[in-house]
């Protein structure tokens, strides 16, 4: 799982570089995110604009990441591609997460996490 983190003000911006978050990598995604969110921030924005496909295992992993965070540190999503958007809509997860059409522009340079 390859991820890159940047800062956008008080938010930790996490760019997922893999094209799929599916059953084959859902656990690795969750483990990678557990490490990534160690960096303190007010909120976490997960940029999914490079993710063309996410299945229910991937969805479960995103829910698990949200539950790793305390209630006052929300997980927000950005840049959902059409298939990913469809999975969130059909499972009504689009009502649970704040979803931004696009990831915000970073205010600080980032770090690469290859996990």
């Amino acid at each position: 799982m390859e991820m890159r983190t940047e800062r956008h003000g008080g938010a930790l911006l996490v760019h997922v570089a893999d094209a799929r978050i599916d059953a084959a990598v859902a656990i690795r995604f969750k483990d990678a995110m557990r490490d990534v969110i160690m960096e303190p921030s007010d909120r976490v924005i997960l940029d999914l604009s490079q993710v063309a496909f996410l299945d229910s295992s991937g969805l479960g992993a995103v829910v698990a990441v949200m539950k790793m965070l305390p209630p006052d540190r929300p997980l927000e999503l950005a840049g959902l591609t059409p298939t990913v958007e469809k999975v969130f809509r059909l499972t009504r997860m689009d009502r649970v997460f704040t979803i931004h059409p696009e990831a915000p522009v970073a205010t600080d340079p980032g770090r690469l996490h290859a996990l």
Binding site: D55, S56, S57, L59, G60, A61, V63, A64, M66, K67, P71, V87, T91, V96
Partner: peptide, 10 residues
Amino acid sequence: TDSLPEGGYG
């Protein structure tokens, strides 16, 4: 949201 299931969406 704390009690949201992490599976069963398939």
